[in-house]
């Protein structure tokens, strides 16, 4: 690992570790209006890890993900994906937005949504072909939704919608998966199905980052945590970083100490 001097967008000279890690972030700041949603956050996600991004509501977790992928404009900061700018490493990344961010009344079937994940392999001015359809079916199979391929997406339950989103990400066959609250509002069966797919991805050497809400499942699902409340509070392995002290600092008074006691903390 070497350290290089890079000129940031602001013209300021900053140090960015030039690694080929899936994600390296230095000083990421994203602002909606005058109020920064994410302020000068650093992060580095090692390959093959499963990281939970944790923090209270409105702490900028989703904005952090969107900022790294350029889905929302960055005010400042350096982001490297596998050591490259995101635009150059796009095909190695799969992003799963929040389920509630789209209109499920859109006229599409389940298979149509999964086919969107194969966009990169279709080619400009061309349409999806039967081999894409086969690949999409395999991805639906992996999340247990193959029987729903021709179902209108508006007829799905929340958990089924989330599985379809995961299948679309699988279709991208990426090395690095970023998921925004994949467990929000899903049933227990879906949660188990998603976790098992994510663990398969990790077993295949891929990297997973999830914005996550349920503190009680963090040690079971993840091996690393990134604690954010506008600023970065802490980042590291669950064993050393998922501590009562760090959680108290992240959540402030919003997390009762009694609740912290119930967690299986390090």
């Amino acid at each position: 690992m070497s350290t290089a001097k890079l000129v940031a967008e602001s013209g300021k000279i900053v140090d960015v570790a030039t690694t080929d890690a899936p994600l390296t972030v230095r000083g990421l700041t994203v602002s909606y209006g005058n109020k920064p949603a994410v302020f000068s956050v650093d992060a580095s996600i090692p390959a093959g890890s499963m990281t939970a991004i944790i923090g209270p509501n409105g702490a900028g977790k989703s904005t952090f993900l969107k900022g790294t992928l350029g889905v929302v404009p960055r005010l400042s900061g350096e982001v490297r994906i596998f050591g490259k700018l995101f635009a150059e490493a796009r095909d190695r990344v799969a992003y799963v937005p929040q389920r509630a961010s789209v209109d499920w009344d859109f006229p599409a079937r389940v298979i149509d949504v999964v086919l969107m994940g194969l966009y990169g392999s279709v080619g400009l001015f061309r349409l999806w072909r039967s081999r894409h359809r086969e690949q999409a079916m395999e991805c639906l199979e992996r999340v247990g939704m193959a029987d729903f391929a021709d179902r209108q997406i508006g007829q799905l339950s929340g958990g089924q919608q989330q599985r379809v989103f995961l299948a679309r990400a699988l279709a991208q066959n990426a090395e690095f998966y970023l998921l925004d609250e994949p467990f929000a509002g899903v049933d227990a069966a879906t949660e188990r199905a998603i976790v098992s797919v994510l663990k398969e991805l990790k077993a295949e050497g891929r990297t997973v980052v999830c914005v996550h809400h349920d503190l009680s499942t963090v040690p079971e699902y993840f091996d690393r945590v990134l604690l954010i409340n506008v600023r970065r509070i802490a980042e590291g392995p669950v064993e050393t970083t998922f501590t009562a002290e760090n959680l108290q600092e992240t959540y402030g008074g919003r997390l009762a100490s009694a609740h912290i006691d119930e967690l299986h903390l390090a």
Partner: peptide
């Protein structure tokens, strides 16, 4: 359908 996803890909 999904502008954020579209931007990311």
């Amino acid at each position: 359908f999904d502008a954020a996803f579209a931007g990311a890909i």
